[in-house]
Write a protein that binds this DNA or RNA. Structure first.
Lengths: 185, 185
DNA sequence: CTCCACATGTAACCGGTTACATGATTTT
DNA sequence: AAAATCATGTAACCGGTTACATGTGGAG
């Protein structure tokens, strides 16, 4: 999948691996993120496949960068992925649910479970706040610097909205779970 | 993580790898699932670590099975994991969000995106229904066959409840997204 | 007689993370 | 002088999937 993220970002404009990691962190980060090392190796692979092209851009005040550009073949590949029907739901993995599911029925360990749930509640509340306060600023800054990508910012905002709804659901569940475990377990 | 799933299931009672896959499919399946092949190799690894023990159980009418039992060391390992604080949120990966984020701004591809969103809406509505109708039956059958595990069924139901809230959030978002794309993109 | 459920395993591969390695320039 | 940001890469490892391989017994 990273392949299409890279092609997608490069469809905006030429970028270095380092740039892409920055963009990813602020935009797709909450539903897809990878490490820099994987970005570099995947870009290299894509270049070997002819989907991107790169050249070294010397910089006076900073280290040289390798800037990647989408090729025509890359654009075709991206469009093909876009039009391809997604027929399955992604399978999820969630460690907290695992810990709840396999929690000890022994009441002596109840407090440890509750402590973990309360910590997660705090983390998810903060995350929701970020989606509501910081992300809109990031989106606004993005179209300010690149007004031609205004149509794209609506899509970005849609995934931000997903984040808000997701966190709201998670928060509600955590509150219910905490109450249930406090009283009934 | 699979390690703790296996230890967790074996803490209920001795089971074969094949059994565990069945249990996983109906219970933890919606937030953690793996293939049989990985269950077999991981059980073998856990036995080498001394966390589980196995013996062949001959069966008259069916092929022999290798039944695994949790050792004391395995129980200690499981309890240690349970009490260990979970301090981070799991990172998520969601292909549909990726497809929305990198959708083409070109209006000609709008219908392809909408078709994918509508299909996902259908899948998520069906999944929600399963959590509301089939899963409670599975839980009831579980405590009927093993009444001693009744306290555990509350935890199972809690993760089922998560599933419902998650799907509700997803469905709401999909409906909003479809409307937004129909009108504004 | 064929298909399905039961049952266990190995080997190759793949996406992604962690650790290692290097080095320039700017800020504190 | 140290720490942070910019910048690029390689190698080892790991969790998990896919494909391969084998075989029994019961149901239709």
């Amino acid at each position: 999948m990273l392949k299409f993220i890279l092609l997608g970002f490069l469809s905006y404009r030429p970028l270095s691996g380092y740039d892409i990691e920055h963009w990813m962190r602020v935009s797709t980060g909450h539903f897809w993120h990878v490490k820099l090392s994987q970005i570099y190796t995947t870009l290299k692979k894509l270049e070997a496949e002819g989907l991107v092209r790169s050249e070294i851009e010397p910089q006076a005040d900073r280290p040289d960068r390798r800037v990647y550009t989408l090729t025509d073949a890359g654009m075709v590949e991206l469009d093909q992925w876009r039009s391809e029907m997604l027929v399955e739901m992604d399978s999820k993995k969630d460690t907290l649910l695992l810990k709840v599911f396999f929690a000890s029925p022994d009441a002596s360990q109840k407090e440890s479970l509750l402590a973990q749930l309360r910590l997660q509640l705090d983390l998810h509340q903060k995350q929701k706040q970020r989606y509501e306060e910081e992300t809109p600023e990031a989106i606004a800054g993005f179209i300010e610097r690149q007004p031609e990508l205004a149509p794209h910012s609506k899509l970005w905002d849609l995934t931000r909205r997903y984040g808000v709804l997701y966190e709201e659901g998670y928060i509600q569940w955590l509150q219910e779970a905490i109450q249930m475990i406090e009283n009934e377990l």
